[in-house]
Simulated assay, not measured.
Amino acid sequence: MGLEVLNQWKCFGGTQSVYAHASEATGTRMEFSVFDPGKGPAPVLYWLSGLTCTWENFTAKAGAQRYAAEHGLILVCPDTSPRGDDVPDAADEYDFGKGAGFYVNATQQPWSKNYCMYDYVVSELPGVAEATVETTGQRGISGHSMGGHGALTIALKNPDQYKSVSAFSPIVAPSQVPWGHKALGRYLGDDRAAWADYDATELVVARGWNGDILIDQGSKDQFLEEQLRSTLFSDACAKAGVTLDLRFQEGYDHSYYFVASFIGEHIAWHAARL
């Protein structure tokens, strides 16, 4: 199957599109959304969503198109996991299986056949998505929760591909929290060295980052103390000499109301760096 146009809408002077294609990385049909401000060649900001999400959550709820049009950024938002009747799943677990790909390349059966979201986002999606728009060749990446984990780890491992990285409420140290123990243990097995390759707190110390990083975290986030543990990453950045602006936003939780409140600032921040 070639690239299929599922929907297109006029939006803030640009075009919001949704596409589908056959993915080599996941072996499944994958959907993604693209917002093109329609002002000629532009940088691309990739957005990675969190647990249970598809491309639609960010595209419909964040209100990001207004700011992307203002600052001249293309937005690309993929799904969070492979989909399909033949894709293995943990149907009664919201934090594993479909909707919970964790942006890793699974090595354990039965997950390894389809759950290759790292390769999908890094190696396959840019060629497919950017063929639909005119770009400057500059890319940034951001995300929320599990997607914040994905954005940080992908950027830290691919600094030549992504020039800017930010996150909302990211899982910064999956090797040290229950969500990560579950996902990394089942996708990657018991080898903690393999886990470290998808752990932003480990990666920033090992690899550094030639630039600054922006993270927004709600102070009333119900997952902050057990699952997110933002200060582990700030401590690691300090150790690595990486400039991090970790902003605790008073009274905000983990929801898209929080994302929508600050997405304009993140888009302006990326635009200044791209």
Rank of each mutant, 00 (worst) to 15 (best):
E4D: 13
V5T: 15
L6P: 06
L6H: 07
N7C: 10
W9K: 14
K10Y: 04
F12N: 12
S17E: 14
S23G: 11
G27T: 11
F32D: 06
S33D: 11
S33T: 14
V34T: 06
F35S: 08
D36Q: 11
P43S: 03
Y46C: 02
L51R: 07
W55G: 01
N57G: 06
T59V: 13
T59A: 15
A62K: 03
Q65I: 05
A68V: 03
E70D: 05
H71E: 12
V76D: 04
P78L: 08
D79C: 08
D79G: 09
T80I: 10
P82C: 03
V87C: 05
P88H: 08
D89W: 00
D92V: 08
E93L: 12
G97S: 07
K98V: 12
G99N: 05
Q109S: 09
W111C: 06
K113E: 14
Y120Q: 05
Y120M: 10
S123P: 00
A131I: 06
T135F: 09
T135I: 06
T136E: 03
T136G: 09
G137N: 08
Q138H: 13
G143D: 03
G147C: 10
G147F: 08
G148F: 01
H149R: 14
A155C: 14
A155W: 09
A155E: 02
P159W: 10
P159C: 10
P159M: 07
P159Y: 07
V165T: 11
S166L: 08
P170W: 09
V172C: 15
V172S: 14
P174C: 03
G180W: 08
H181D: 14
H181M: 12
L188F: 13
D190R: 15
R192V: 15
A194E: 15
D197W: 08
E202I: 01
V204A: 02
W209V: 05
N210P: 06
N210L: 12
G211R: 02
D212C: 12
L214Y: 01
Q217M: 11
Q222I: 10
Q222A: 10
F223G: 11
F223D: 13
E226F: 03
Q227M: 12
S230G: 12
C237R: 10
T243I: 05
L244Y: 02
L244W: 04
D245L: 00
L246H: 03
L246A: 05
L246R: 02
Q249G: 00
G251Q: 09
G251D: 11
Y252A: 11
D253P: 05
H254P: 02
I263R: 06
E265V: 00
A271H: 01
A272F: 00
R273Y: 09
R273S: 07
R273K: 14
